[in-house]
């Protein structure tokens, strides 16, 4: 580790706010990019299953 304490890693010689916010935004965007389509996929399959069950019930 380059920094010798937690607070110096946070401050980064005055650049901490810039660096940490840039990394934070990146992590947020990456999480959205990965999680949103996975949730959407599950949701579509669940909706389809519901529709199919309803169809089968109507038939019988």
């Amino acid at each position: 580790m380059y920094f010798d304490s937690f607070s110096s890693a946070l401050q980064m010689g005055g650049h901490g706010g810039f660096v940490w916010s840039a990394y934070l935004i990146t992590v947020l965007v990456i999480c959205c990019l990965v999680i949103l389509p996975m949730r959407k996929e599950k949701q579509i399959l669940r909706q389809l299953e519901g529709a199919l069950k309803r169809q089968n019930r109507d038939k019988s």
Binding site: M1, A9, M12, V19, Y23, T26, V27
Partner: peptide, 25 residues
């Protein structure tokens, strides 16, 4: 990679720590 760039590399001699943004930019 994020931890490496953020915490384990030395700062740039001219830009200081702000250069760490290079690892995502």
């Amino acid at each position: 990679g994020l931890a490496w760039g953020l915490l384990f590399t030395a700062p740039d001699f001219r830009q200081g720590n702000s250069y760490r943004i290079i690892y995502i930019h």
